[in-house]
């Protein structure tokens, strides 16, 4: 907290007269509060996620990941495909990697279900088009939404080449089975998407899908970490294994990688 706000707070306890004078000053100064990160929070230069397609292929694993994510983030379960909201879901390899497949793509991959989510791009088109900066990219690479600012224009949905964004066509709350009190729901008329579990990272926990995948499919089904550190597990995984990105030709530089 900077000095002027401290002074203001002191003034305000003196009395109403103090309030009247100090108030315009304090509001004009704007953000001046002292804040900290939570103890034990995880930080990184550049978060990245490596998904092992083969290990994350079974319905059990995929179900566990989707459930874990959607449960803690109050993602509604809406049957109607037109109104569906999703943060992480499955698509066939052919759908997810249209520029990697050809007529003779091997059978094991062609129709294989792949877990897909927001790619937390290095150059996110959704951030560029957002007229209110409701979608923004954090210094650590997470492409995040400030729901308070979303006006529901859906430019980002049009801009995202991965279909990672969902619009709340109607009030989602009646479609949430158990509302999780630790995380806000959304209201009708806003767009939402994966936030790479920013709220869990802040508490020192790995993303929910990573935790679920590694619990059900065994270690390294998903590897999550800091790409900015050469000796981190993701950096090592990317160095030693053959990985692909979704639609690399678009130049968005996704930071969710797939081990084929």
């Amino acid at each position: 907290m900077d000095e002027s706000r401290r002074n203001f707070l002191k003034c305000s306890t003196v009395g109403v007269a103090g309030l009247g004078l100090a108030v315009p000053v304090a509001t004009a100064i704007g953000k001046a509060l002292t804040t900290e990160t939570l103890p034990g929070h995880l930080s990184a230069k550049r978060w990245a996620l490596v998904v092992d397609i083969a290990k994350c292929q079974s319905p059990d694993v995929q179900h566990a990941c989707v459930e874990a994510c959607h449960q803690i983030h109050n993602v509604p379960n809406i049957e109607d495909k037109h109104h569906e909201v999703k943060w992480i879901w499955k698509q066939t390899y052919t759908e997810a990697f249209p520029d990697q497949v050809h007529e003779y793509t091997e059978d094991r991959l062609k129709d294989a279900p792949v877990l897909v989510l927001c790619n937390h791009c290095e150059r996110p088109p959704c951030v560029r088009v957002c007229p209110t900066q409701a979608t923004f990219k954090r210094a650590d690479g997470i492409v995040m939404m400030d729901m308070h600012r979303c006006i529901g224009c859906r430019y980002c949905i049009a801009a995202c080449p991965y279909g990672a964004r969902s619009f709340n066509w109607k009030d989602p709350v009646p479609h949430i089975k158990n509302v999780h009190a630790n995380f806000p729901t959304r209201c009708k008329g806003v767009v939402e998407k994966c936030n790479l579990c920013a709220e869990r990272l802040a508490q020192g926990l790995a993303p929910a899908c990573v935790e679920a995948a590694n619990r059900v499919a065994g270690p390294d089904a998903m590897v999550f970490g800091d790409l900015g550190q050469p000796d981190s597990n993701v950096a090592r995984a990317l160095r030693t294994r053959h990985t692909i990105r979704r639609k690399p030709s678009l130049g968005t530089a996704p930071h969710v990688f797939y081990v084929v």
Binding site: H82, N168, W169, K170, D171, K188
Partner: peptide, 8 residues
């Protein structure tokens, strides 16, 4: 009441 779900 229902939002854009009505028209899509």
């Amino acid at each position: 009441r229902d939002g854009l779900a009505v028209t899509g």
